[in-house]
Design a protein around this nucleic acid. Structure first.
Length: 346
DNA sequence: AAGTCGTGGAA
DNA sequence: TTTCCAAGACT
């Protein structure tokens, strides 16, 4: 085996982080393999999301839905509510789609190879390779942000991302061993997450310090190079928090496509330069003195919040009243929960 | 094939 | 305060 892969595995054997979805190197050596359902769920949650943010969500999901068949029979609203706050809500919609395909078309058993996994909703090149490697111990090269960074530094690649991806992928494939590929995949990513970090990498304690070209050249901290990003514009909007006299809240289910798709939210205006008032029900609306500030991937948002108490028996123009007993603020995406918190004085 | 799509923690 | 960024997928 390549010396570099072996050095990395030796390091992993000593430093592998304990995670709820992971079978550690010693257990794996005894033939134990992780549950593909848990690997899949964790990998989807970990897309563009930190381990720290995922932990509690993973626990709640696996407690409530222990198997893929359990998840497949869940109601849409229950899954979206459980995902609320984790972000990138298309993941939750595709998660449920995928669970139902696996339950219906695959007898509740996940495919054991990259190609078949790739055909499932929400499973792209990275996740297909990761499940294939981690759950089924297949020698598939995984390419995520960590691996890109590690490769860029190991080989001192100065081509900016994303143009450098093919070159970095070739190096990653070259280094992927035939032995213990599942542990290796997690080892590279652990290295990237804990040692070979984006800022101020800990080269002093890195197991790959000897062969690292960027370390030798003194360029590690500035790699990988990236093409500059566009500045985020600021948009404005108005949301309306109506509470009926019996305590019910006026909410709406957002359309499946687009921003916060499929999530529960407060009725409101469009978001743009100068939002137009769009109250969902006739009432004496009061404007809250403070505003909600929130930043999405590609724009900043400033939300003005309106509040009103409305009498029973009045039909809204949009949305539907949710009984107070059935309303959980934790079902809301964060930006909507911020508006609620503002009203409650939190 | 660039743009879309969340969030919170770190620096 | 602002910027950066995290185990990407989809269109």
């Amino acid at each position: 085996m390549e010396t570099l892969a072996r050095d990395l595995l030796d390091w992993y054997d000593r430093h592998a982080r304990v995670m709820p979805w992971r079978v550690g190197p010693s257990d794996r050596q005894r033939g134990l393999r992780p549950d593909p359902y848990r690997v899949w769920l964790s990998e989807v949650m970990l897309q563009q999301t930190t381990v720290a943010a995922v932990r509690d969500y993973f626990h709640r999901f696996t407690t409530r839905w222990p198997t893929v068949e359990d998840l497949a029979t869940a109601e849409d609203g229950a899954v979206m509510g459980e995902w609320a706050g984790l972000g990138y809500y298309a993941r939750a919609r595709n998660l449920l789609k995928c669970a139902r395909v696996v339950a219906r078309d695959h007898g509740g058993v996940f495919p054991d190879n990259r190609e078949d996994l790739l055909a499932l909703p929400g499973i792209g090149p990275y996740t297909a390779a990761a499940i294939s490697a981690i759950a089924f111990d297949r020698p598939e090269p995984v390419m995520d942000g960590n691996v890109e960074r590690v490769m860029a530094r190991l080989f001192d690649i100065h081509t900016p991302l994303p143009a450098a991806k093919p070159e970095l992928a070739a190096y990653a494939a070259m280094l992927t061993p035939q032995e213990r590929p599942g542990d290796y995949a997690q080892a590279v990513m652990d290295l990237g997450a804990t040692i070979c970090t984006p800022k101020s990498p800990a080269c002093g304690i890195c197991p790959l310090r000897p062969p690292c070209a960027a370390r030798a050249a003194g360029t590690a901290a500035e790699l990988p190079k990236k093409t500059p990003k566009k500045p985020k514009p600021t948009r404005r909007g108005i949301v309306y928090l109506a509470q009926r006299e019996d305590g019910a809240w006026l909410l709406e289910r957002r359309p499946d496509r687009g921003l916060l798709g499929g999530m529960l939210g407060w009725p409101g205006s469009d978001w743009g330069e100068a939002p137009v008032e769009a109250p969902p029900i006739a009432a004496d609306w009061a404007m809250l003195p403070a505003e909600v500030r929130h930043t999405f991937t590609h724009f900043h948002l400033i939300l003005s919040v309106r509040h009103a108490v409305v009498p029973l028996g009045q039909a809204p123009h949009s949305g539907h009243f949710v009984p107070q007993s059935a309303f959980r603020p934790s079902d809301l995406p964060t930006v909507m929960r911020k508006a609620f918190d503002l009203l409650r004085g939190a």
